[in-house]
Simulated scan of single mutants.
Amino acid sequence: MSFDLDERLAATLKAHAGADIDPAPLVAQARNRGRRLRRWRHVLTGMGTVTACAVLAGAVMVLPNSQGTDRTPRQALALLLPASPNQTGAAERPELVGTDPAVVHFTADDLVAGARYATWTAGRGTESVEFHGGTTQARFVLARTAATLAGVRQTLSSSGQPEPPTGVRVNERPGSAWFDPSPSSGRGLWFVRWQPVDGLWARLDIYADSRDEATSAASRIRFDDARRCAVPFHLQSLPAGARLLECSVNLRLNGPGVFAEGSLVAGDESGRWLTVRAQRAPTRAKDATDELTAGPYRVRRQGSTVLEMSVRPCEVEVFLKGRGNGYTEPDGLTVLGGYKPAGDIDDANTW
């Protein structure tokens, strides 16, 4: 491409020296050059956008679509938990799995990157992620004992008539896999169960076309790193003797923001517990109609077991029964009074 308009103008003027100048060739050349510059500006702008996205820690990845012909951008990092640089992965400290609601001791970046929704959970003996959307749907659970893992309820749909397990190897570790036809999917539900390290048990439930595909997916889960299980709020007032037991956060790509909902479970040694859940409000937050107060907030009742308040942009609830047991309404008001939003609701690194 040439940018020598000045030289062309000079040559044209010299050729017409002493004569009347016809402006038509000059105007045509200027217009042509302007069109070329605009085309290149669009190209360079597009290249700059791609470069900037690549620099932003890989926030946009380019992955092949199901046909393998075009390349489709996906927000690969939006559904992942923030890093926890001061924590070690399950491979180094297996005894910590499920003990700290603030830490997930594994990563599943390659698997989750193709999804549109992901729910991460940590605490009360297990750590897990369930993700779906696009061409993938799966759930991974990690526990310290086989009994704890066996007690985790299945969430993906199947016929309930699994075939007998067969032996497999996941990253050279022994395990087993079995198949259960799915009534709602053309792909069967595969279960892969193995010990990624001594002292830990893992299970991947995934819709896949074959045992090899399922075991290959399991091999992509890593246990040498940790992430923070975080929600965009803190609980600064808990009932006497209570502590945080579990964290759960649901992230999504096809909504008004990345955060969909998050929950914290608190309880004590006597077996009492309650759940506080914040959901992104789809519309203008409702005004409370009851006269209850919790710290700076007005609170309304949902029946006799749930308290609710609006803290924009979220609706916040505390469950005393069903998702809780043993605590009273005054306890719930104490907890809601200490509710405090944290950081940017759609930037998990600020929570």
Rank of each mutant, 00 (worst) to 15 (best):
residue 192 V to T: 13
residue 192 V to P: 13
residue 192 V to N: 13
residue 193 R to Y: 02
residue 194 W to S: 07
residue 195 Q to E: 08
residue 195 Q to R: 09
residue 196 P to T: 07
residue 196 P to W: 08
residue 198 D to V: 10
residue 198 D to R: 12
residue 198 D to L: 09
residue 198 D to F: 07
residue 199 G to T: 07
residue 200 L to V: 11
residue 200 L to W: 07
residue 200 L to D: 06
residue 201 W to G: 04
residue 203 R to M: 14
residue 205 D to G: 09
residue 205 D to F: 09
residue 205 D to C: 10
residue 205 D to T: 13
residue 206 I to M: 15
residue 206 I to Q: 15
residue 207 Y to G: 13
residue 207 Y to W: 14
residue 207 Y to Q: 11
residue 209 D to M: 12
residue 210 S to E: 14
residue 211 R to W: 12
residue 212 D to R: 08
residue 212 D to I: 09
residue 212 D to F: 08
residue 215 T to G: 09
residue 215 T to R: 12
residue 216 S to R: 07
residue 216 S to E: 10
residue 216 S to H: 08
residue 217 A to W: 12
residue 218 A to T: 12
residue 218 A to W: 11
residue 218 A to I: 12
residue 220 R to L: 12
residue 221 I to L: 13
residue 221 I to H: 06
residue 222 R to M: 07
residue 223 F to I: 09
residue 223 F to T: 02
residue 224 D to E: 15
residue 225 D to R: 04
residue 225 D to A: 11
residue 225 D to H: 01
residue 226 A to P: 01
residue 226 A to G: 02
residue 227 R to C: 07
residue 227 R to P: 05
residue 227 R to H: 07
residue 227 R to S: 10
residue 229 C to T: 11
residue 229 C to R: 14
residue 229 C to G: 14
residue 231 V to N: 01
residue 231 V to A: 02
residue 232 P to V: 00
residue 232 P to C: 00
residue 233 F to S: 03
residue 234 H to F: 02
residue 234 H to N: 02
residue 234 H to M: 00
residue 234 H to S: 00
residue 236 Q to E: 10
residue 236 Q to P: 01
residue 237 S to C: 04
residue 238 L to K: 03
residue 238 L to Q: 00
residue 239 P to H: 00
residue 241 G to K: 06
residue 241 G to P: 05
residue 242 A to D: 01
residue 242 A to M: 03
residue 244 L to R: 15
residue 244 L to H: 14
residue 245 L to I: 11
residue 246 E to Q: 02
residue 246 E to Y: 04
residue 246 E to C: 02
residue 248 S to K: 01
residue 248 S to P: 03
residue 248 S to W: 07
residue 249 V to L: 01
residue 249 V to K: 01
residue 250 N to W: 05
residue 251 L to V: 06
residue 251 L to P: 02
residue 254 N to V: 12
residue 254 N to H: 13
residue 256 P to A: 02
residue 256 P to F: 03
residue 258 V to K: 00
residue 258 V to H: 10
residue 259 F to E: 05
residue 260 A to F: 12
residue 260 A to S: 14
residue 261 E to R: 13
residue 262 G to W: 08
residue 262 G to H: 06
residue 263 S to V: 09
residue 263 S to L: 12
residue 264 L to V: 15
residue 264 L to S: 12
residue 265 V to Q: 14
residue 268 D to I: 11
residue 268 D to M: 12
residue 269 E to V: 14
residue 270 S to C: 11
residue 271 G to C: 08
residue 271 G to D: 02
residue 271 G to M: 05
residue 271 G to Y: 04
residue 272 R to H: 10
residue 273 W to M: 08
residue 274 L to Y: 00
residue 277 R to I: 14
residue 277 R to C: 12
residue 279 Q to M: 04
residue 279 Q to H: 05
residue 279 Q to S: 10
residue 279 Q to R: 05
residue 280 R to K: 00
residue 280 R to H: 13
residue 283 T to S: 11
residue 283 T to A: 10
